[in-house]
Design a protein around this nucleic acid. Structure first.
Lengths: 214, 214
DNA sequence: AGTACTACTTGACAATGTCAAGAGAAAGGG
DNA sequence: CCCTTTCTCTTGACATTGTCAAGTAGTACT
């Protein structure tokens, strides 16, 4: 049995990660500093190195966490009631945007090849693969194709691109000044989602994919 | 008259910028260092400060250049013959992807709020606005709406999201390992473009927007 | 000739990432 | 009980970075 020595095991690791994430949320990944993170976690400047190999190790851990959460979000969309209420595409888009908004610190790291660490950290890479597989399953299920079809892949990539572009442009893009308030931006995003989902339904109908659902 | 003092005026500025861009292309914006850039440009470590206020000034100049080039690309799509050969949406998507591929150094900076400097550097911001205006015009013209309609805006944002997501995912995203070769990726991207363009044409037809063109 | 300006250079400093070397507590075995 | 190992964290040191301050060589203008 393990006795806790006044703090839970991994407490510092969590503190460091959370400090890093909140730092990324407020100032972007660019200005994440090992020492600032340590300071905010209330530990010495070398403590983070016990849990992460180096700065890129922190990024890798964050993107791993992020992709795991994203895979989870995809799974939830499938099991939630949300999927049936309106079009599945709309549910997917909305879920993706919500994920990005709620995990913006993760989101900013996950899709940046230079810092995500996906190529050098296999654990993180595997989580990314899982998330993609989950997306493929989701698309295949709602669209009625088997997941390994070329068509299903193309369809999934198209949906992902649409959702991802929307999230990126609205959360970190050069649009902020164009729309006045945050509320306007949200309405605008909803309108785009509506339009995109409508187009998906048109395409699905034309392809004869479970048109009953739409 | 101005005598050239052995090198053209602004030569160093260009050298610095190019060094920065090529550094970003190979290693990402994260690892752009003022001193390394100076080293590659063959000047002292402070020379860049004569042309750029600080590190973020270099990023701002790059995103300014990038948005100017993007606006140009949008204009070309409208005047080129390309627009008439196939669907306008396909031409737009292809142009956007080509722009991203050919100016990947710029592209990686332009859409990152934390380093693009759009909020703090008005010149860069203006170029971004121009590019967006050009996109709006392009969409409005091909779609037959006036550019200041709410519908045209939503449509433009949808198209931009689709194109941007595609570019981001394929150029810097976690997809690399999924597709085998670069050639596969290109084919995959083309398939997605084809699908997306087809959906756009369906939507346009349903909305009664210049269906003759499609 | 002298003054001002341009386009740099050299020097210095605080902050950062990271390596090396501990230090202290806990755990386990004898 | 002591001894050793391991785990978790700290202190110290060093090269490198961004940036401020000050200098300097050449050109332009009066």
């Amino acid at each position: 049995m393990k006795k806790v020595p006044h703090e839970q095991h991994g407490d510092v690791r969590r503190l460091v990660l959370d400090a890093a994430i909140s730092l990324i949320e407020s100032d972007g990944p660019e200005s994440l500093s090992m020492r600032e993170v340590a300071r905010r976690a209330g530990v010495s400047h070398q403590a983070p190195y016990h849990y992460f190999k180096d700065r890129s190790g922190i990024f890798a851990a964050i993107s791993q966490e992020g992709f795991a959460a994203l895979a989870n979000a995809f799974r939830q969309v499938q099991t939630d009631g949300t999927l049936d209420t309106t079009s599945p595409a709309k549910a997917g888009f909305t879920a993706y945007l919500r994920f990005a908004r709620e995990h913006i610190g993760h989101f900013r790291v996950m899709f940046r090849a230079d810092i995500s660490g996906l190529s050098s950290h296999p654990e993180a890479h595997e989580c990314a693969e899982d998330a993609f597989t989950e997306l493929l399953n989701m698309v295949a299920r709602t669209v009625g194709h088997s997941a390994d079809t070329q068509d299903a892949l193309t369809f999934a990539l198209m949906l992902w691109s649409q959702a991802h572009g929307l999230a990126t442009l609205f959360l970190d893009g050069p649009l902020e000044s164009r729309m006045g308030s945050r509320l306007d931006a949200e309405k605008q995003a909803d309108a785009v989602i509506e339009l995109a989902a409508h187009m998906v339904s048109l395409e699905a109908r034309e392809q004869g994919l479970i048109p009953a659902r739409y």
